[in-house]
Computed example of a mutant assay.
Amino acid sequence: MAKTIFITGASRGFGKIWAEAFLKRGDNVVATARNLDALTGLVNIYGKQILPLQLDVNNRADCFAAIEKATAHFGAIDVLINNAGYGLFGTIEETSEQEARDQIETNFFGLLWVTQAILPVMRKQGHGHIIQLSSVLGITTLPVLGLYNASKFAVEGLSETLASEVKGFGINVTLIEPNGFATDWAGASAVNTTQLEVYDGVRAAFQAGLTDDIFGIPEATAEAVLKLVDSENPPLRLFLGKVALPWAGQVYQDRLATWNEWADVAAAAHGK
């Protein structure tokens, strides 16, 4: 049976790839973007299957209006994929107040507004699946991406909490955790801070670690996302790529080892 999928940030990258994958198999797609021209090709091919909507997720009222339009058009929304977002490259010290606020505004608050807008619809339906595009950088971190890391850590906490709150309404929540993929996320879509020379060594070390083998092929993720959407018992977290899960596993192993080293100090701090 065809599903109706609402995808933010569908003009490029993962959003556009996944939108086309759903359309190809016969699903209905509500595709949002700041610039609808980027969706013309899909509209020309798939016609009434796709509803393109202009949306800046930073505007909470517009997020609610977009969900209302989509629901009125297709009658239901089975799946929300919160994909809109971008990367801010720069060290913590280099980041301006406006750059920091803009990063959190889009990656966290934009996701929150769309999530809040969809919840009454899915509660009324008695079913739904909210998929949040997080990152392995919501579990561990890299230098030069501090505010991006922070935004994804916030998405992790929000979404894990949400999952516990809405399960009783028949709503599932999944965090997608990709490693690096060869999209334009680090290119045209990225924002860069004004650099301080003192951090040139940090940047050089970061760039040296960006070898071709760590980047996956974006189109290869489509099958995994289709399987996720079709699952009757979807996981809270789904890693994408060969790098993300082993990396996260090692990070947790190291964390547990350190925490256990300090276990006696932690227990004594309880006071009784």
Rank of each mutant, 00 (worst) to 15 (best):
M1C: 12
A2T: 14
A2Y: 11
T4D: 01
I5C: 02
G9T: 04
F14D: 02
K16M: 11
I17T: 08
W18C: 02
K24H: 08
G26H: 05
N28C: 11
V29F: 02
V29A: 02
V30E: 00
R34L: 08
R34A: 09
R34D: 08
R34T: 08
L39P: 00
L39I: 08
V43N: 02
N44I: 09
N44A: 15
I45M: 11
Y46R: 06
G47R: 13
G47C: 10
K48H: 13
L51S: 02
L51C: 05
P52I: 00
L53T: 03
Q54I: 08
N59A: 12
C63S: 07
F64R: 06
A66Q: 01
A66Y: 03
I67H: 02
T71P: 01
G75Q: 11
G75K: 11
A76K: 15
I77P: 00
D78A: 06
L80V: 04
I81Y: 04
N83G: 04
A84F: 03
F89V: 12
F89C: 07
G90H: 03
T95H: 05
T95E: 05
S96G: 09
E99G: 04
D102N: 14
Q103N: 14
Q103S: 10
F109Y: 10
F109M: 07
L111T: 08
I118H: 00
P120W: 07
P120H: 09
M122F: 02
K124I: 11
G126I: 08
I130L: 06
I130A: 00
I131Y: 01
I131L: 01
L133A: 06
S135R: 02
L137P: 00
L145R: 03
G146C: 08
G146W: 01
L147M: 15
F153D: 04
A154M: 09
V155F: 02
E156C: 05
S159A: 10
E160F: 04
L162F: 10
A163R: 07
S164L: 14
E165V: 05
V166N: 04
G170R: 04
I171P: 00
I171Y: 00
N172D: 15
E177M: 10
P178Y: 03
F181R: 00
A182D: 11
A182L: 13
D184T: 09
A186W: 06
N192D: 14
L196W: 12
E197A: 15
E197S: 13
V202G: 06
R203I: 05
R203K: 13
R203A: 06
F206K: 08
T211L: 11
D212A: 15
D212S: 15
P218A: 06
E223C: 11
V225D: 01
L226Y: 07
L226F: 09
L228R: 04
S231W: 05
E232D: 15
G241I: 00
K242I: 12
G249Q: 15
G249V: 10
Y252G: 12
Q253Y: 12
Q253C: 12
D254R: 14
R255L: 15
A257M: 13
T258A: 15
E261W: 12
E261N: 15
D264V: 12
A266I: 13
A269F: 11
H270S: 14
